[in-house]
């Protein structure tokens, strides 16, 4: 098992004809992911061709979902159009929407979050690497890859990884795979101040997934999502958790690349988050090189 997606999940891609969307659609098809439809308004009826795959393109998400049975979407549309794309996917009744787009106005996400309240669609991202549930083929092919993560670094197994950062997720996954330890599902929740799913939302899913036996939780400076996750872990989590917080050396008041990675008003510091992790019994990796080892020592 896994969380959010399985190798059977049917995925559509919004923005499939853009260069970024097209490139990663090809990589997902190569990985063995069931990309069943693309959506680009005005290009309905065309076909996205790659290595023997022909993916039909539709004008609307609703039409694409109806015709192909897709239940999940990967969004690669440019920032000014991303909020609209997310809400279109929600309106079409998709179960899962993964928004990769970086640079969406914060207030657009405030509106999106408000509009999606009480609806069944789960949003991951934006500004995230996406989700991978590794498959059982060579280099973990045959899995479900939604987004931009490198597929081959994964290995099927029983560790769940959740992080705000893309490359730091790859670092953790690669450390696990190099030690022969596989992953159930790896989820990048994104580096923006307003995102669809929090660390805590994903932790709950890992906690309930019988196939996930341990969790790596990667956070960074800014906001209080890590503290909330730690509080929940202390009270409810039945599985070993290792954590790392990036940004101990970041100066206050400066945005460290990610829109959400900023220490403001004295809150969101790495020290406070690490203290919250430790108080919750999370094994804190002393360096980012030791994320896998720290979890394995706990398991």
């Amino acid at each position: 098992m896994s969380i959010l997606v399985t190798p059977q999940t049917k995925v559509l891609v919004q923005g499939i004809t853009g260069s970024f969307g097209a490139r990663h659609t090809k990589l997902s098809l190569d990985y063995g992911t069931r990309i069943v439809a693309g959506v680009t308004p005005g290009k309905g009826g065309q076909t996205f061709e790659h290595a023997g795959h022909g993916v039909p393109i539709f004008d609307t998400v609703a039409e694409a979902a109806r015709q192909t049975g897709a239940t999940a979407s990967a969004i690669f549309v440019p920032p000014p159009f991303a909020a609209d794309a997310i809400l279109e996917a929600g309106d079409a009744g998709l179960e899962l929407v993964v928004c990769i787009t970086e640079g969406i106005p914060v207030n657009d996400m405030v509106k999106v979050k408000r509009a999606m309240t009480g609806r069944p669609t789960r949003l991951i991202g934006p500004n995230c690497p996406g989700i991978v549930t590794p498959g059982h083929g060579p280099d973990s092919r045959g899995g479900c890859r939604i987004g931009i993560a490198p597929g081959y670094i994964h290995k099927p197994g029983h560790v769940g990884v959740v992080s705000r950062s893309g490359t730091l997720t790859y670092e953790a996954v690669w450390q696990l795979t190099c030690r022969g330890v596989g992953q159930s599902t790896c989820v990048g929740i994104g580096g923006d101040p307003v995102n669809g799913s929090s660390h805590l939302d994903i932790l709950r899913l890992f906690n309930d997934d019988p196939d996930t036996h341990g969790i790596i939780l990667i956070g960074e400076i800014g906001g209080s999502a890590e503290e909330e996750a730690a509080e929940w872990i202390r009270a409810h989590c039945r599985k070993p958790v290792a954590g790392f917080i990036a940004g101990a050396t970041a100066p206050p008041g400066r945005r460290m690349g990610h829109a959400g990675a900023i220490i403001s008003g004295g809150t969101g510091t790495a020290a406070a988050k690490i203290a919250a992790f430790k108080a919750a019994g999370i094994a804190v990796a002393p360096t980012p090189s030791a994320m896998a080892e720290t979890l394995l020592a706990r398991m």
Binding site: S163, R164, S165, G166, T167, L168, T169, E171, G191, I218, E220, I221, F244, A246, G247, A248, T249, A250, R254, M256, G257, H258, A261, A270, P286, T287, P288, S289
Partner: peptide, 23 residues
């Protein structure tokens, strides 16, 4: 490459006793 990894790299430089000059 990557904001999270860049922050973590600054952190690990400090962990080994150095001082990062930049993000």
């Amino acid at each position: 490459n990557g904001a999270g990894l860049a922050m973590a790299t600054m952190d690990i430089i400090q962990h080994y006793g150095g001082r990062p000059a930049n993000f």
